[in-house]
Deep mutational scan, measured.
Amino acid sequence: DEETLERIAKELKEKGWTLIVNGKLITDAREALKWLLEEEERR
């Protein structure tokens, strides 16, 4: 759910983690959240 996604995005940002999505590096939590939401919609 959205709360979980926001928590994940926040944790990613705090830890300075990066996500690699389709070979693209995502360092911004907002971008990561946007991607996660798009993935949820596809299901």
Results as ranks from 00 to 15, higher is better:
L25V: 09
T27S: 06
E11L: 15
E6S: 09
K15M: 09
R7Q: 06
W17S: 02
G16H: 10
E31I: 07
R30A: 12
E6Y: 05
G23S: 03
E14Y: 01
E31A: 05
R7T: 04
V21Y: 05
E39K: 05
L19S: 08
A9I: 14
E11I: 15
V21P: 00
A29H: 03
L36Y: 06
E38G: 05
K13N: 11
T4M: 14
A32D: 00
G16M: 11
E39S: 04
K15R: 08
R7M: 07
V21Q: 00
K10V: 06
K10L: 07
R7V: 04
A29R: 01
E40I: 15
L5G: 02
I26A: 03
R43S: 10
K24A: 11
E3W: 13
A9V: 14
L19K: 05
I26H: 01
K13A: 13
K10R: 10
E31N: 10
E6T: 11
E2R: 09
I26T: 01
K34C: 14
E39M: 13
W17P: 05
R43F: 10
I26Q: 00
L25Q: 08
I20D: 02
E38S: 05
G16S: 04
E31K: 09
N22S: 05
A9E: 04
W17I: 11
L5H: 01
A9K: 09
G23Q: 01
E38L: 08
D1V: 13
K34V: 04
E14F: 05
E38W: 10
K24L: 10
L25P: 07
T4G: 03
L37T: 05
G16N: 10
E2G: 06
L19A: 04
E38V: 05
L25T: 06
A29F: 14
R43M: 08
E6D: 10
T27F: 13
I20P: 00
R30V: 12
L12Y: 04
N22F: 14
E3K: 12
K24D: 03
W17M: 06
W35E: 01
T4A: 09
L33D: 00
L5K: 03
E2A: 10
L12C: 14
E31C: 03
D1W: 15
T27D: 08
D28M: 13
I26Y: 02
E41A: 13
K10F: 01
R7C: 15
R43I: 11
E41Q: 12
W35Y: 08
E40D: 07
A9Y: 14
N22K: 04
R7E: 04
E31R: 10
E6A: 12
T18A: 12
L5M: 06
L36K: 00
R30N: 10
E3D: 13
K34F: 06
T18D: 12
I20S: 01
T18F: 14
G16Y: 12
E39P: 02
W35D: 03
T18Y: 12
E40V: 14
L37V: 09
W35G: 02
L19G: 06
E3R: 10
E14A: 04
